Simulated assay, not measured.
Amino acid sequence: MKNDELVTNALYQELFVENVAIYSKRLSRVDDLSSSLGVFDKTRKIYSNLTDDEKETITNLIKVVIADTASVVLGTIDGTHIPNNIDGDFELFYKNEQIQGDLQDYFLELVETNNVI
C-alpha cells in the first residue's frame, strides 16, 4: 500500500470507526443530563428523547459532516479544493514521501465503498 493510501486509511479509521463510536457512546450517556449547559450536553439531552430511528439519523448526519469536512481539508491539501484567500500550493510529506494529490479521492472512495453515508 502506498503512503498516501496508508494515511487516508488511517484517517478514515480514526474518523468513522473510532470517533463515530465515541460520539455515539457519549450521546447515549444519560447520567447528569440536567446540570450542564455545554453544547454536547444539551445535544445529549435532546438525543435521549429520540427514537432509535431518529438516533440513527443523527449518527448518519454526524457521518456526513465528518465526510464533508475531511473532504474539504484533503481536497485543499491535494489542490482540488481552493478555499477563499488561499492561493498557494500545499506539500504534505509522510516518511519522506510527498503524498498529496489523491488523498481526497482515496478518502471518498473509502466512504463510498463502506457505505458510510
Rank of each mutant, 00 (worst) to 15 (best):
Q13A: 04
E14T: 06
L15R: 03
L15V: 10
L15I: 11
L15E: 09
V17T: 10
E18Y: 13
E18R: 09
E18K: 07
V20I: 12
V20H: 03
A21P: 00
A21G: 03
A21S: 09
I22K: 11
S24F: 09
S24Q: 08
K25H: 15
R26P: 00
R26I: 06
R26C: 07
L27P: 04
L27A: 07
S28Y: 13
R29L: 14
R29H: 14
R29E: 11
R29V: 07
V30I: 12
D31C: 13
L33T: 11
S34E: 13
S34Y: 13
S35E: 13
L37P: 04
L37R: 14
G38M: 09
G38H: 14
V39M: 10
F40R: 07
D41F: 15
D41R: 03
D41K: 05
K42M: 05
R44Q: 10
K45N: 06
K45V: 14
Y47D: 07
Y47V: 04
S48Q: 11
N49E: 11
N49T: 14
T51E: 08
E56A: 13
T57F: 15
T57E: 15
I58C: 09
I58T: 08
T59P: 01
L61E: 12
L61Y: 15
K63F: 12
V64I: 11
V64Q: 04
V65L: 05
V65Q: 05
I66H: 05
I66K: 08
A67T: 03
A67M: 02
A67P: 04
A67E: 02
A67S: 11
D68F: 14
D68E: 06
T69N: 07
T69I: 02
A70D: 00
A70K: 05
A70V: 11
S71H: 08
S71A: 10
S71P: 13
V72R: 06
G75L: 05
T76L: 06
T76Q: 02
I77C: 02
I77T: 07
T80P: 01
T80N: 08
T80D: 09
T80V: 09
H81Y: 15
H81D: 04
I82M: 10
P83T: 07
N84G: 09
N85T: 05
I86Q: 11
D87H: 13
G88Q: 00
F90K: 02
F90N: 00
F90I: 00
E91T: 07
L92I: 03
L92D: 02
L92E: 01
F93E: 08
F93Q: 00
F93P: 00
F93W: 15
Y94R: 00
Y94A: 00
N96M: 01
Q98K: 08
Q98W: 10
I99A: 00
I99N: 04
Q100R: 00
Q100K: 04
Q100Y: 10
Q100E: 03
G101V: 11
G101K: 01
G101T: 02
L103C: 02
L103S: 01
